[in-house]
Design a protein around this nucleic acid. Structure first.
Length: 441
RNA sequence: GUGGUUGUAGCUCAGUUGGUUAGAGCGCCUGAUUGUGGUUCAGGAGGUCGUCGGUUCGAACCCGAUCUUCCACCCCA
């Protein structure tokens, strides 16, 4: 009856060498979040279905993992009351409403936890994956949009990415476009269609707009937006003329102009900031800025996303608290970094020294020295038995431990130790204090 | 959710029209080396061919179901 064990579709085990690299990503992100004044929180893996349902568009509900009810409730029509969280933003909105009296606004929080989607897996698309979110609620200041773009730039530059684009747009501009075309009520179908410009091209988008019942007159009006070119400033100018009759559209232009001017004024390290009118994103709670980050030259979906949402907490009974936030897709960033070979060697090392075990007396001496090394902050371990030396050396080699220390009968007698550099193969004899001095130099 | 694709040793993959005992490279284990890993040499172990069922004298190969992988939609990190 011992069937081969299996793992749930779209999920993964992480081995130590993979974890070292994943932690490198998480640590880098966390460090930047902290530097910008964000505070950590966590929320439960499960939320009530009521909290989650209806927040992610029609498609979103389908992708939420529902938890089967238990006991008698199971008979009662299979109505799930609990579900695994689909992202970190909606649970955060719920969190803010419930804890509004304990937190200080503007509240800046970061959160690094897994989320689950009942999707069909593909490369770079998992059913369990981590999001690393930073959000601010309680302020509609555009200062935060500027800072969030800087955070994208700083994190990804620190991770070693050199070629990536931060795409920015504004939902108000999309509303303005729909308004100017006389199809104000069709903003969702319009944005969903033009979002695909990259993928299906201009003709494909036009076809899709037709299928979605947009008038030919409106399509003709939208047409020039498909071939928007030039610098961000050029695009802003063209859009401003295009949206001249739309109050909301002009408001979007004004916001976007501020953010772009500020960011460009201060400069970015590696990121390219690109205004992209066709950037829409599926989440329909966005109301202002919309962000997406793409790694150029790697064929994978977006690696980060984000935007401003004015009404999200209102859904849970707290109005007047605008929020804006971003999310790093750690799993996709991992895939990109693997493909580009960007993980540093140093992300792999753990134990620095292995004590070779030659017998009981030698082991006792090694344990004393190991404690000594650990007290000075050097990570080390003692091989647990007097196995063949070849086996012990191989263990050090396989674990990429850079030094081994040998204490045999001679060293025991003389109060010395022999240490070997595993990379160069050189070895020397010293006493414990000299060894510590060597490692700390 | 729709359509397609993949599965053979720990890993990457061969495997002829269905025909004895299913192979290679790498990795692993043992020895050459009783105080020296990574290199070299010699030897060895390891497979219910994803799973279940069917066709056949006979199935890794043909058929069906199922799971998994990847891809295109949908959507998204």
């Amino acid at each position: 009856m011992s069937n081969k064990p299996s793992i749930v579709k779209g999920t993964r085990d992480f081995l130590p060498d993979v974890m070292a690299k994943r932690n490198h990503i998480f640590d880098t992100i966390k460090q930047v979040f902290v530097k910008y004044g964000f505070l950590p929180i966590e929320t439960p893996a499960m939320e009530t279905t009521e909290t989650l349902m209806g927040k992610y568009g029609e498609e979103g509900d389908r992708l939420i993992f529902k938890i089967l009810p238990r006991g008698d409730k199971l008979k009662d029509g299979f109505k799930p009351e609990e579900a695994l969280r689909y992202d970190l933003t909606v649970p955060f909105a719920r969190f803010v409403v419930m804890n509004q009296n304990e937190i200080t606004f503007p509240f800046k929080r970061y959160q690094i936890q897994p989320v689950w989607r009942a999707d069909r897996p593909q490369k770079g698309r998992y059913r369990e994956f981590y999001q690393c979110d930073a959000d601010v609620v309680g302020s509609d200041s555009l200062v935060y949009e500027v800072e969030l773009v800087q955070i994208f730039d700083e994190v990804l530059s620190n991770l070693g990415l050199t070629d990536f684009s931060v795409k920015i747009n504004n939902r108000k501009i999309l509303s303005g476009i729909a308004e100017v075309c006389g199809e104000a009520d069709k903003i969702i179908p319009i944005t969903v269609a033009i979002d695909k410009l990259d993928k299906i091209g201009k003709d494909g988008v036009i076809k899709e707009l037709e299928e979605r019942g947009i008038s030919h007159k409106a399509i003709k009006k939208i047409d020039p937006l498909f071939s928007l070119t030039g610098s961000n400033q050029d695009k802003l100018k063209t859009l401003k003329d295009f949206l001249a009759d739309s109050e909301i559209g002009l408001k979007g232009i004004e916001e976007l102009t501020y953010v772009i001017d500020q960011v460009e004024g201060m400069g970015l390290r590696k990121a390219k900031l690109e205004l992209e009118v066709t950037l829409a994103r599926g989440l329909n709670y966005y109301t202002g800025a919309i962000f997406e980050v793409a790694a150029n030259n790697v064929k994978i979906g977006s690696i980060c996303g984000g935007g401003r949402y004015d009404d999200l907490t209102a859904l849970f009974g707290l109005s007047g608290t605008s929020g804006v936030g971003i999310s790093f897709g750690a799993d996709r960033i991992y895939d990109v970094m693997s493909e580009l070979n960007l993980f540093p060697e140093s992300a792999l090392q753990s134990t620095k020294v292995l004590f070779i075990n030659f017998g009981e007396d030698e082991q006792n001496q090694s344990m004393k020295y190991a404690k000594h090394l650990r007290d000075t902050g050097i990570s080390c371990e003692v091989y647990p038995s007097a196995a063949k030396m070849k086996k012990q050396m191989k263990y050090a080699n396989d674990r990429s431990i850079p030094y081994v220390v040998m204490i045999g009968s001679d060293e025991l007698k003389n109060g010395t130790l022999t240490y070997k550099n595993m990379e160069s193969g050189e070895q020397e004899t010293a006493n414990i204090n000299q060894l510590i001095a060597e490692f700390n130099s």
